[in-house]
Simulated assay, not measured.
Amino acid sequence: MHGGDGPSDDAAGRRRARRLLVAAAVLAVSALLYLADLIVSSGTVPRGVTAAGVQVGGLAVDEAELRLRAEIEPRGTRPIPVTVG
């Protein structure tokens, strides 16, 4: 065979192209699913988010803010013990 012009080289090239196409398709579908999730959940805090120990994931932004204020503000009024020396 001269310079890689044989039938086995053509088959290898097709296999490589098919693998690349499958990988690109998987990547494209994953990107579309991610974008769909962003669109559906817009206006809410992403699932699984915790702030200052308070679960706020999946809540509307306003609800998350209210929950955080309700949980955190009482902490701000408690005295903080300080020891010197």
Rank of each mutant, 00 (worst) to 15 (best):
H2A: 11
H2L: 13
H2V: 13
G3D: 13
G4V: 08
G4C: 04
D5V: 14
D5I: 14
D5H: 09
G6V: 08
P7E: 08
P7H: 07
S8M: 12
S8P: 00
D9A: 06
D10K: 12
D10F: 08
D10S: 10
A12E: 09
G13K: 00
R14N: 05
R15C: 11
R15I: 15
R15L: 15
R16P: 01
R16S: 14
A17F: 01
R18P: 01
R18V: 15
R19A: 13
L20A: 12
L21P: 01
L21A: 15
V22F: 15
A24W: 04
A24H: 02
A24D: 13
A25D: 08
V26T: 10
V26N: 09
V26E: 14
L27S: 10
V29A: 11
S30V: 06
A31R: 08
L32F: 07
L32C: 09
L33M: 06
Y34G: 14
L35H: 15
A36Y: 07
A36K: 09
D37Y: 06
I39F: 06
I39A: 13
I39W: 09
S41V: 12
S41A: 13
S42P: 00
S42N: 03
S42I: 09
S42F: 06
S42M: 11
G43Y: 01
G43R: 03
V45Q: 05
P46C: 04
P46A: 05
R47G: 09
R47W: 01
G48S: 03
T50Q: 09
T50E: 14
T50P: 03
T50Y: 08
A51V: 15
A51D: 12
A51I: 15
A51L: 14
A51Y: 10
G53T: 05
V54I: 06
V54E: 03
Q55N: 04
Q55I: 00
Q55K: 05
V56R: 02
V56M: 05
G57I: 00
G57L: 02
G58L: 05
G58K: 05
L59F: 04
A60W: 07
A60N: 12
V61L: 10
V61A: 10
V61W: 01
V61T: 13
D62L: 06
D62A: 10
E63M: 07
E63W: 00
E63A: 13
E63D: 12
E63Q: 10
A64D: 00
A64P: 01
A64M: 03
E65K: 04
L66F: 08
R67E: 07
L68I: 08
L68C: 01
R69F: 10
A70L: 09
A70P: 02
A70C: 00
E71A: 14
E71I: 06
E71R: 06
I72E: 03
E73P: 02
R75V: 05
G76M: 12
G76L: 15
R78F: 07
R78Y: 06
R78T: 09
P79C: 00
I80G: 03
P81L: 07
V82L: 09
V82T: 08
V82N: 00
T83Q: 11
T83D: 12
